[in-house]
C-alpha cells in the first residue's frame, strides 16, 4: 500500500518539471506585453522596451525559466504587473475563497447525486429512474454559464433572495456575521453548481448499480439470505462506488474549471476570476503561477484518485 503511494509520488516529480516548462513556454508564447496597457499616452516605445529589459523579458527563454525556478524555490513567484504586489499574496487571498466555494459545491453535489444514482439504478426502467435520467440530461445539455446568468437573474434580481456579487458583505461585523455572510454568498453559486453538476456521478453510479444488481456475487448474497436492503448497502453500493471514487480526485480540478465561469458571473473574488483578469492584462507572473498551481492540483488529484482506488479495490494494490 505505502509502496504504491511512494511510487506514485516519485513519478510525480518529472511530471511536475515537464509541466512547469510547458506552462512557462505557453505563457511566453502569448502575444502582447504587460506594459502597453498600463503606461500613459506620452510614454514612447522606448520606455516600454526599457521596462521589458529591466524585467528581463528580452532574455533567452531558458534563462528566464531558470530565474523563475530559482525564485520559485525561494517561495517567490514574482510580482504581479497588474497589482504591483507579490503573486503569492494575491493568489493566497483568493485561493481561500475558491477553496471554500469548491468544497461546498462538491459536498453538495455528492449529497444530491449519490442517492439519485442509487435510487435510479435500483428502480431501473421505472418512473423515478426515467425522471432522474431526464433531469440529468437536461442539466447536461444547458451550458453552465447560461444557468448561472439565469440563476443570478431569477434568484438574485427578480426574487432578491441571494446576493449577486462578491464573497462577503462589506457591512458584516464580527466573526459570526462574517462567516454567515460568506456562507450566504456561497449559497447560490454552490447550489447551482451542485444541481447542474450531477450528471456524471448519477449516470456512472446508475449504470454501475444496474450492472452490480445482476452480477453473480449479488446472486450469491441473495442465496445466502441477505436482506435486500443489506445487499444494496454492503454489496452493491461499495462495488458501484469504484468509478465514483476514481472520479473524486479529478473532480477537484473540474471544479477549478467551473470556478472560472462561476466566479466571473458572480464577480466572486477567487482564483477563477483572477485567472480570467490576468489573461486579459497579460499578467505573466500571475498566469504562470496559476496554471502551475492548477496543473499541480491536477497531478495531486490523480494521485488522490489512485489512493482512493487502492483503498476501495484490493485488486489494484501493487504488492
Amino acid at each position: 500500500m505505502w509502496k504504491t503511494i511512494l511510487r506514485r509520488i516519485l513519478i510525480m516529480i518529472p511530471e511536475i518539471i515537464i509541466l512547469s516548462i510547458i506552462v512557462f513556454l505557453l505563457a511566453k508564447a502569448m502575444p502582447g506585453d504587460p506594459f502597453t496597457g498600463s503606461i500613459n499616452p506620452r510614454a514612447g516605445v522606448a520606455q516600454i522596451h526599457h521596462l521589458m529589459e529591466v524585467n528581463g523579458l528580452y532574455d533567452p527563454w531558458y534563462q528566464q525559466y531558470w530565474n523563475w525556478v530559482v525564485h520559485l524555490f525561494h517561495g517567490n513567484l514574482g510580482e504581479s504587473y497588474q497589482y504591483n504586489e507579490p503573486v503569492t499574496r494575491i493568489i493566497g487571498q483568493r485561493a481561500v475563497n475558491t477553496l471554500w466555494l469548491s468544497l461546498f459545491t462538491v459536498v453538495l453535489t455528492y449529497l444530491i447525486a449519490l442517492p439519485m444514482g442509487i435510487y435510479a439504478g435500483r428502480h431501473e426502467g421505472k418512473l423515478p429512474d426515467t425522471v432522474i435520467r431526464f433531469y440529468t440530461y437536461v442539466t447536461y445539455c444547458i451550458p453552465f454559464f447560461v444557468i448561472l446568468v439565469l440563476g443570478i437573474w431569477i434568484f438574485g434580481y427578480v426574487l432578491g433572495w441571494f446576493p449577486t456579487t462578491g464573497s462577503v458583505s462589506p457591512t458584516a461585523n464580527g466573526t459570526f456575521a462574517t462567516i454567515g455572510s460568506r456562507f450566504y454568498h456561497m449559497l447560490l453559486p454552490g447550489i447551482l453548481g451542485a444541481l447542474f453538476g450531477t450528471v456524471n456521478i448519477v449516470q456512472y453510479l446508475r449504470s454501475e448499480v444496474v450492472d452490480a444488481k445482476s452480477s453473480d456475487y449479488v446472486r450469491t448474497a441473495r442465496a445466502k439470505g441477505v436482506p435486500i436492503n443489506d445487499i444494496y448497502r454492503h454489496h452493491i453500493f461499495r462495488n458501484s462506488l469504484l468509478p465514483i471514487a476514481a472520479f473524486a480526485g479529478y473532480s477537484i480540478t473540474g471544479l477549478l474549471n467551473g470556478a472560472i465561469f462561476t466566479e466571473s458571473v458572480f464577480s466572486y473574488p477567487g482564483m477563477g476570476l483572477l485567472f480570467v483578469n490576468s489573461i486579459s492584462y497579460r499578467d505573466y507572473t500571475v498566469i504562470t503561477a496559476l496554471v502551475l498551481l492548477f496543473g499541480i492540483l491536477n497531478i495531486f488529484g490523480t494521485l488522490l484518485s489512485d489512493i482512493i482506488l487502492s483503498i476501495v479495490d484490493p485488486r489494484i494494490r501493487i504488492e
Binding site: Y217, A221, A223, K224, G225, D313
Partner: peptide, 21 residues
Amino acid sequence: LNYNRDVQMIFQDSLSSLNPR
C-alpha cells in the same frame, strides 16, 4: 421460516460469485 438458513446454493463460476472486494 428463515428459509435461506436451511437452503443454500453453490454456483458454477466461483470467481464472479464471490464479491471481489
